[in-house]
Design a protein around this nucleic acid. Structure first.
Ligand SMILES: [Zn+2]
Ligand SMILES: [Zn+2]
Ligand SMILES: [Zn+2]
Ligand SMILES: [Zn+2]
Lengths: 127, 127
DNA sequence: TTACATAGTGTTATATTATAACAATTAAAA
DNA sequence: TTTTAATTGTTATAATATAACACTATGTAA
């Protein structure tokens, strides 16, 4: 439980109350009235928030979402479902999935310290 | 087995012989002597090659790699290991992994039509 | 062959995403 | 306190990706 700096808190609050992943420049636009005026200020806060696991980056969308598992202290094992029509993104919290992937060894016996998994399909509403 | 257009073939050959994932503008630089002069020409070929499964995009790196499983006719189930030091990327071909993920259902019973998984760690050489 | 549809190409301009470099300020730890 | 690390503010620029339009090649079907 880390205390966030001013910019980090402003940006986290915005992402956290967004029903969908937010892109960096959409964040910038939304926080300009709070005095955050430059892309770098946004990216710096995003980097830190990702590092401490408060938000995750959806790599296939260049967008950021608040962690929906209060347990993700650090972003090292993330899985998302992404609707290809409405772009709704949900963080998957399945202990069997995370167990499987955390223990996965490739054919050389190598284990990995981190992973990111993105599933694509149609959400309930869009089917 | 689709026959590639001229630009698609040039760009595929380049990526295929590269020992590491290539970024779009590195590709552009390398094919300029062959008459491909604009980013859009590169991106169009990349889009098509991804669509037909001859190459994959490593989302966390914005880079492209030739498919290493001759079986991936279409890119809908991809998994990679990525070394965080040397950036070496390998396509993982594990039937148990692909079986597990293809059949994965989330807690609402939803199955997905596509996924992309990226594992991170240190490769043999970098450990 | 001719007509038509589809896919691919070439080109210019521009949009979107992200980082470099430097100076100043604040918070924390020794 | 002093000194170290983290954060902020700012300008400029790099890297990644798409829009729009005109044209050309290729395949299919009458
Ligand atoms: Zn999380
Ligand atoms: Zn949907
Ligand atoms: Zn493949
Ligand atoms: Zn390595």
């Amino acid at each position: 439980m880390q205390t966030l700096s001013k910019n980090q808190q402003i940006i986290f609050d915005l992402i956290d109350k967004s029903p969908e992943p937010m892109k960096a420049y959409a964040i910038l636009f939304n926080v300009q009235k709070k005095g955050i005026k430059a892309p770098l200020q946004v990216y710096r806060a995003l980097d830190k928030l990702v590092e401490i696991g408060k938000i995750h980056k959806i790599e296939s969308r260049n967008a950021f979402i608040a962690c929906q598992n209060s347990s993700c202290q650090v972003s090292k094992a993330t899985a998302f479902s992404i609707c290809e029509i409405c772009e709704k993104v949900t963080e998957i919290s399945s202990s069997s999935l995370s167990k499987y992937l955390t223990n996965f060894k490739d054919k050389d016996g190598m284990k990995y310290s981190k992973y990111n998994l993105e599933f694509f399909g149609l959400c309930k509403k869009c089917r």
